[in-house]
Nucleic acid binder design. Sequence first.
DNA 1: TATTGTTATACTCTATAACTATA
DNA 2: TATAGTTATAGAGTATAACAATA
Lengths: 183, 183
Amino acid sequence: MKPDIAQRRAGGKRRTRVAGLGARRKPARLRAAGEAGAVMRAPKVDLGGLDQFTGYVVRRAQVWIFQDFKRALKDLDVTPAQFSVLKIIAANPGIAQARVAEALSIERARLVQMLDRLEAPGLISRIRSAIDRRSHALHLTGEGARMLERLEERIEEHERNVVERLGAKGKSELLRLLGPFLL
Amino acid sequence: MKPDIAQRRAGGKRRTRVAGLGARRKPARLRAAGEAGAVMRAPKVDLGGLDQFTGYVVRRAQVWIFQDFKRALKDLDVTPAQFSVLKIIAANPGIAQARVAEALSIERARLVQMLDRLEAPGLISRIRSAIDRRSHALHLTGEGARMLERLEERIEEHERNVVERLGAKGKSELLRLLGPFLL
DNA sequence: TATTGTTATACTCTATAACTATA
DNA sequence: TATAGTTATAGAGTATAACAATA
């Protein structure tokens, strides 16, 4: 059984046994906290070992990194997902939508809208294939290529923020550790 | 300038210069790929260095881990986020909603619905605080505590899957590396 | 029959704003 | 004035299903 937060807070070495429902000589506020109808006050929240679960830690790191990405690129208005699509198209000129979706594990139905938003400002082009008329060949436009360059500059700055927390050696260690998760 | 995928594919050492728009003596299919209106065929997609960006790698790892979590707990129907809420409440009996939201970086407006879904099946209780009548004291019910135990068993299995890819030493390294991102 | 791009639907999540009741 | 819980809304993301054109 876990002692209530107020008890732990008031406790320290002085506390030898955990209070049940019976009152102690603590101030009413502290005595009540943890009992039904009382709320925890100011003290820091106990994560309860959550930070020992890989999923929790990786998720928090991912959120931090994406927020910093967003902040570093806010005036260019490009999301991490959009950036990854641009990179794939740049590296594979003429690639079909289904291949991009596959490579990034984006639903191809979802990719349609993503490409709409890259095509509208003229960053990419969709051209019906002459070979397989079901599919579209994707290419970066000149504007798209210039945009990608601008993005990469900003992302360098962002990566420096990440490496600041990771250490230069830390980044390569991290990439090595997480390699097996890239399906 | 990046050569088109078909060219790279057909290339190898034999290729010394990249084709412009002019035709070469390749089969029409390969020659066309990468030009406007042609699509890339079967060869593996080039990630174009995406796997050197921390954000990409961490994101892919996070998705993998959450999918495995979901798979391992599918019959219990609990998401990673719900699990984290249960853990926080278990570790901080009587905690107020706003503190939980803060600790997990969930919008408190969003937490309302999450708690609704934990309260409905009787896993947690919300009790209006006698001390500060604006807030609710959150507690795990008996059923909630039992559920949490069952969850932890399943999550052990899930964590083993993760460690299988990370290595036992890898997990502790990972937690150490990502520690600085836990705000 | 299978695949490609597309539309549509439902559910989840994020981000805000605003309201109420309390402090 | 500020905070806690709540409701509402809009935008993204995820997950499916279905359809027309094409292979």
